[in-house]
Every structure is written in C-alpha cells, then in structure tokens.
C-alpha cells in the first residue's frame, strides 16, 4: 500500500511556518515515515507540472502557509485545492492574512513605488519594476501579477481546516497530523487549537486584578515589563484575552505581550473590534479629553489590533483604496 501523499506549499510568508515543520525535529521522521511528501518547495525539488499531472484528490492533505497576494499563489491554491482531499490553511498568514495583510492599508502603487523606487536601501537607478511578461532574446518569461488585495487562503479557495499561529507550534502541527492520519477529524472549518482565549494558559493570569482601570497604555519598548505581572495590569496592550490559546503562552512567557497571531475564538467575527471594545471599556476616564489622553498610548490601532488579522477582519482592507493600482 502506498503511503498517503502530503504537500507543503508557501505563499506570501516569511518561511517561519516551514521552520515549524522542521522544528518537529525527531517527529518529522515519524511523519516522513508515514507519508509521502509530494511537494515541499523549501526543502525538496518538485515541479508544478508533477502536481498538475496527479489525479484530482490524490493528495491527502496540503498544508499551505502564507497569504495570497500574487496570481501565482492564487493559481497554486486553486491547483492544490483540486488535487487535495484536505486543504489546510497553515499559520496566521494563510488563516488570517498575517503580517503581509497589513499591506491592505496601502495602495498597490504605493507599495511598488516604495519597493522599486524610493526605498533607501535600493539600488535600482532605472526604476525597473517587475513586468507580468516580457520578450527577452526570443524567450517569453512570465512573472506572477502582484494583486491589489492581500487575501487569506479561504478568500480564494475552500479550506477544510486551519492551524493557527505565527508560526504554528510543533505540538499543534503534530496534533493535526495525528488527526489526519488517524482519520479522527474535527468538523470541517475547525481551527485546530483550543477555543478559549490565551489567558487560560498564561502563567500571569493569577496576577491580573479584578479592578483594572486603564489610565495609560504603554508599548513594550517604552517600559521594562515586570516579568510576572499581567501585561494589562501594567498598561501594556496584550491581545491575549481576544486571542485563541494553544501556543503555550510562548510570548508572555518570554516577557512579551501577546500580539494576537492565533486569531479570534470561534465566537468572534472581528478580533480587533473585540479587543478594542474590552480595552476601551476599561479605561478609567469618563470624559472625551481624558479618554483620548489615555488612548494616546495606542497610536496605531489597526497595526496593534489587526497585526495578523486584517485580511480576515470585517473591513478586510482600507476601504477607500481602488483597484487600479492608485489609491487615496
């Protein structure tokens, strides 16, 4: 009997998710033993045409990480969807848009201009920009098109499961593999992580008083954080209460507040709106001036509350951006 086929693919991502797969360490061998990896660009050499040649649904599961920003990523997402029984959005970018989705605050043209013309570290005197296709000595190479909008995987194709995190933890990855290989699968659409917020597993939980009333907000670089006290009790924005657990409270254990990479619980439609609601309601001031003074400590609410989730948020993208490369 042939081993089940598994594919890994990366789209708009940093490669951190791939590291997690590698971080399975000894366990990776167990996985490799049980499955047949048919695509893994970061580690192994396969060609798209090999995949295209495969029968539909012949891959048991594809773990796809990264947001979808280019036409090539879309194309591969569609292809892998067709070839896989289970398509799994692996990591915050595929699930929620991740850091790349913060680009949804800016017009495409601004991004291209900065990256190919204005960036101080750039050496591109001809201000050459990537073209979708060109003629070069009789060859006709194609480059993927850079889209206007950063998308989550499920905004492009149907997704079966989500493994959250930036990056996902080895433990959750292992759990997902175990579930897949054993056939003991949760309902379609599930996020493979506890549906309880992070505080549940945070060591600092007990140190949070029941009478927090914010008089100021500080950012991690502005204050040396107490290594044991709840960050919110220190006036530091911590996304923990609005973020799924399952990471083992890795950041808060490392004396950094949670930034929300595991996304919201299943009961929440917009993670940023919810943490905003909670933090603001607990501000001490009652008058507009006092409230705004306290809120000066959150200079960039979008970047703070939607660090990983902008593409999946209710608004998805800065609404006054158009689709012709220009912008506001």
């Amino acid at each position: 009997m042939s081993k089940p086929k598994v594919a890994f693919y990366w789209c708009a991502s940093c490669g951190g998710c791939e590291e997690t797969v590698v971080d399975l360490a000894e366990d990776i061998l167990g996985v490799v033993e049980k499955v047949d990896i048919c695509l893994w660009p970061v580690a192994m050499d396969f060609k798209y045409k090999d995949i295209e040649a495969m029968a539909d649904k012949s891959i048991v599961a594809t773990l796809l990480n990264g947001a979808i920003r280019t036409s090539e990523q879309e194309e591969l997402a569609v292809l892998l969807r067709r070839k896989s029984q289970y398509l799994i959005a692996y990591g915050a970018c595929a699930q929620l848009g991740g850091i790349p989705a913060l680009a949804n605050q800016f017009p495409r043209e601004q991004i291209l201009r900065f990256n190919y013309e204005e960036c101080p570290a750039l050496d591109n005197p001809g201000k050459v920009r990537p073209q979708v296709s060109l003629q070069d000595n009789g060859r006709n190479p194609h480059l993927p098109e850079f889209r206007n909008v950063v998308r989550t995987l499920d905004q492009v194709v149907d997704v079966d499961y989500y493994i959250p995190g930036c990056p996902p933890t080895p433990a959750l990855t292992r759990a997902a593999f175990d579930a897949l290989l054993s056939g003991n699968l949760p309902p379609k659409g599930s996020v493979i992580a506890p549906d309880v917020a992070l505080c549940d597993e945070c060591d600092r939980k007990a140190t949070k008083p029941t009478n927090v009333a914010f008089t100021e907000f500080v950012r991690p670089h502005q204050k040396l954080a107490d290594p044991e006290l709840c960050f919110l009790a220190q006036g530091m924005v911590c996304m923990g209460p609005a973020t799924r657990s399952g990471c083992g409270a890795a950041c808060t254990s490392g004396n950094m507040p949670c930034t929300g990479c595991f996304g919201p619980t299943s009961r929440v439609r917009d993670q940023g709106a919810k943490i905003l609601s909670s933090l603001c309601a607990n501000i001490e001031a009652k008058d507009e001036a006092g409230i705004n003074e306290t809120l000066r400590g959150i200079p960039d609410p979008v970047g703070t509350f939607y660090r990983y989730g902008l593409a999946k948020s209710l608004l998805r993208r800065r609404v006054d951006l158009n689709m012709t490369g220009g912008g506001h």
Partner: peptide, 23 residues
Amino acid sequence: VEGNYKMLRRFQLLKRMLGDMGI
C-alpha cells in the same frame, strides 16, 4: 449607571481606527 461611558470610550478609539481604514 455607566454603560454609556463604556460606549463613549470604545467610540473614541473606533472613530480613529475607522479613519485609519479610510472611513
């Protein structure tokens, strides 16, 4: 008692955030 203050506080930041999102 003070539900309205809680809304006012949310509103202050929400307004700013919506502005950042182009609304």
